[in-house]
Simulated scan of single mutants.
Amino acid sequence: MQEHEKSLLSLIILGALIALGKALNSSEPMTTRLFVGRMILGSATSVAAGAILIWIPGISPLAINGLGAALGIAGFQAVEIWLRRKGSSLLTGKKPQ
């Protein structure tokens, strides 16, 4: 496995663990749909940290994982808040007021 594949895999796992921690810390009832959705969202937002390699090609794997954790938490919260506000109207086909 090449280095960039290892970095991508570690970011996906890191994002999934962040989402798992948020799910376990939440007081709302956990459904399978909510659990899987949070795992996907956490993984996707952490992988966004891989984009830093475009600007800084020689950055260390530890720095990438740190950025992945930060973006995973911040991105997860931002996307979840946006989905709660606008997502339900997007799914039902109604335009927000």
Rank of each mutant, 00 (worst) to 15 (best):
L11S: 05
L41W: 07
M1T: 08
G72H: 08
K86F: 15
L90C: 06
V79M: 11
A69R: 08
L41I: 05
S10K: 10
I52A: 12
R38F: 06
L9N: 09
A19R: 02
A44K: 04
S46K: 03
G42M: 04
G50Q: 03
G21D: 06
E3R: 09
L91N: 12
I12P: 00
I18D: 02
W82V: 13
I59T: 12
G75K: 02
K22T: 08
A63V: 15
I12S: 09
E5H: 10
I59E: 06
G72R: 05
G58W: 02
T31L: 03
L11I: 00
G66Q: 07
G15E: 04
I73N: 02
L83W: 10
Q97E: 14
W55V: 12
E80L: 04
M1D: 11
E28I: 08
S46R: 05
L71I: 02
T45V: 13
E5L: 14
L20A: 11
L41T: 13
F76H: 08
P61G: 14
A16V: 12
A49N: 04
V36F: 06
G50M: 03
E28Q: 12
K86L: 14
N65L: 15
I64F: 00
R38I: 00
L8P: 03
Q2D: 15
I13H: 05
A49Y: 00
I59C: 01
K6F: 11
W82E: 05
I52N: 06
K95I: 14
I12H: 01
V36Y: 01
S10N: 12
I52D: 01
A78M: 10
S27W: 05
A70G: 13
L11H: 05
G15I: 05
N25M: 09
L62V: 15
K94G: 02
P29D: 10
S46I: 06
Q97C: 03
A44C: 14
L91H: 11
E28M: 08
V36A: 12
I18H: 06
A70L: 15
E28Y: 15
G21N: 07
G50W: 01
A63R: 04
G68W: 00
I56A: 10
R38N: 15
G58I: 00
S26A: 15
A70N: 07
K95W: 07
G42F: 04
S26I: 04
A51P: 03
R85Q: 14
